[in-house]
């Protein structure tokens, strides 16, 4: 595979602080990554690790009270942090699009599909309503919806979850964005539909040549869709690398643990049993000391608890935030020490 070079998104040392009722929450603690045109980058992590916050901060959709800082947050060579709300909204839905998790609630129940689908076009392109509708019909066919003209007249509640998610995807792609951020786009769907949607997204990405930031908690999906993988834990990237590198040789105990939780490396069959790593994600309110995973790590050392662990290169493009040598990480969990398999 030839690696595309043109960077569409560049994130350097992104920090996001939220204020919660229990205190300030340092939700994203200095993460850096790039997305190139035509590339799919996956962010993997459990819920609460900061992956959705990362996505929303790129979109500029975090609540006003959230504090977003970064050394660089560049999209299409524009500094997103320097743009005002109006300039940001000019990008959103046009060159920068997002697909959301819940197809059942992501569409407004009181407007027709056609109305909602043409909104980005009417907002960002100088075209007539009629032209917008015919373009919208075409994109509906592209996302595999037949009888587009009839679907355009329907309301969200008249469609199945799979259809709705296709519409949400069509809505994100209708202005041919350079970057699509997909936040768990298939989580709410059943497994067969999930596979279809993934396939569709991969195809569309190839066709449009856009960059994709794919966010999921499901490592199984990652192997099917990603070029590169970022594993996030407690607001930090704990491991990054190409799909092959990460899956062949996970070099952070957390990645290894996640991998071990998959029934057979890749989650395929419906109703497959999922394991889980014992312990809970540390509370980020008020900040944490040392490695965030120390509390759940089977090979925790004294050094892990005292100081922050830096992200260090392992081999090739792979990097990991662990002091253990990769060979030792490889040995972890294999005897299934304390790894409980839950439903």
């Amino acid at each position: 595979m030839t690696r595309p070079i043109e960077k569409v998104l560049e994130v350097r040392d992104l920090q996001v602080k939220l204020s919660t009722s229990t205190g300030p929450l340092h939700a994203v603690r200095g993460i850096s990554f790039d997305v190139a045109m035509g590339e799919t980058v996956c962010i993997v992590g459990e819920s609460g690790c900061g992956k959705s916050i990362t996505a929303l901060s790129v979109m500029g959709l975090l609540p006003k009270k959230a504090e977003v800082q970064a050394e660089a947050l560049r999209f299409d060579s524009q500094d997103l942090l320097k743009l005002n709300e109006r300039q940001l909204s000019n990008l959103r839905g046009d060159k920068l699009a997002m697909i959301f998790q819940e197809p059942m609630t992501a569409l407004n129940p009181v407007y027709t599909i056609g109305d909602q689908l043409t909104e980005p076009l009417l907002r960002h392109r100088r075209i007539s309503k009629r032209e917008a509708y015919s373009l919208a019909e075409r994109i509906l066919e592209k996302v595999g919806i037949s009888g587009a003209a009839r679907r355009m007249q329907q309301f969200p509640h008249q469609l199945s979850g799979g259809l709705r998610q296709r519409i949400v995807i069509a809505m994100a792609l209708i202005c041919e964005p350079k970057l699509v951020i997909a936040d768990e786009p298939t989580t709410a769907l059943d497994v067969t539909i999930q596979a279809q949607i993934l396939h569709l997204m991969k195809d569309l990405q190839r066709e449009f040549g856009m960059g994709m930031l794919f966010i999921t908690h499901d490592l199984g999906l990652v192997s099917r869709i990603a070029d590169r993988v970022l594993v996030m834990y407690a607001g930090q990237i704990v491991e990054s690398g190409s799909v092959a590198e990460i899956f062949d040789r996970p070099s952070h105990p957390y990645t290894k643990g996640l991998m071990q939780c998959l029934p057979s490396g890749v989650r395929a069959q419906p109703g497959a049993r999922l394991g889980s790593i014992p312990g809970i994600v540390p509370n980020l309110v008020g900040g944490i000391k040392g490695c965030g995973f120390a509390g759940r790590c089977p090979a925790v050392r004294e050094a892990c608890r005292s100081a922050e662990i830096a992200l260090r290169a392992v081999a090739g493009t792979q990097a990991s935030r662990c002091i253990l040598p990769p060979e030792e990480v490889a040995k972890l969990w294999t005897e299934a020490v304390g790894l409980e398999i839950e439903q």
Partner: peptide, 10 residues
């Protein structure tokens, strides 16, 4: 969610 969608459309 649909308000977030609307904002994400710009």
């Amino acid at each position: 969610d649909y308000i977030r969608t609307a904002r994400a459309k710009g």
